[in-house]
Amino acid sequence: MTALLKVEGLSKSFGGVQVITDVSFEAEEGARLALIGPNGAGKTTLFNLLTGVFPQDEGTVTLAGQVIDGAPSRRRIGMGMARSFQNIRLMPHLSVVENVMLGQQHRRSGLGAMLSPLTLFGRSESWREAEALIADMGLEAWMGETVSTLPYGIRKQIELVRALAAKPRLLLLDEPAAGLNGTETAQLRDFLARISGTGITLLVVEHDMSLVRSLCDRCVVLNFGRKIYDGSTAQVHEDPLVLEAYLGARHSGETADVA
């Protein structure tokens, strides 16, 4: 097994506030790695650094053996890294199919591809591919709907499908279960397991520990921007530093369910 994603000594500050401090970890090809930590621990900032929304101050990120520091954010999806967002960020005025076709953008960005119609004279290859992917995920009932009119749970799933349309090797999921009910979370778990089965590496930020436990065997815990734990998900609730992060020093002697 080789590391698909390798993060070494990553640091970032905004003004005088140090948000990420010397974080290092690796994710192996096909791994399901959880990234957890209390609110404000720097999980989303870490995602933003990985995808190039902001540049890091220090450290190196390597994806599939290639150092991606300084690569513009729009090139990174083509390097095999796609993500979803904590607060759903689909294009509200676009239909479901159009949003999913946007996920294919990096593979079809030449001048010829940009200027050939998507639907004008029958459905284009892009359109059919997007439709097939949506149908494959069981969402064909929503195909032509404008995204802003759809219920929350459906939009959450469509954002995942859009990320998959990029054919990524590494999928970064920022709280995929937030706002979902129990049934939807169970469906999400099966869905992610299925994606993982196709060889896609998952890096999941999540607060729902039952989902994390059933999906990821390894987790990295962040607190105040520092890595405080990297190891088995089954034992994370026994780690004194993790307990202190969640419960405070006074209660860290007590045993409690993390998050």
Binding site: V53, R74, G78, M114, L115, L120
Partner: peptide
């Protein structure tokens, strides 16, 4: 015609959310 092409899709997604459009690979 232009609005029915992938260029049109890029135009509309830049209008909706330029940060995500960029992350999706739109120039």
């Amino acid at each position: 015609y232009l609005m029915a092409t992938r260029f049109g899709l890029a135009v509309r997604s830049v209008h909706d959310d330029d940060v995500v459009a960029d992350l999706m690979g739109v120039n």
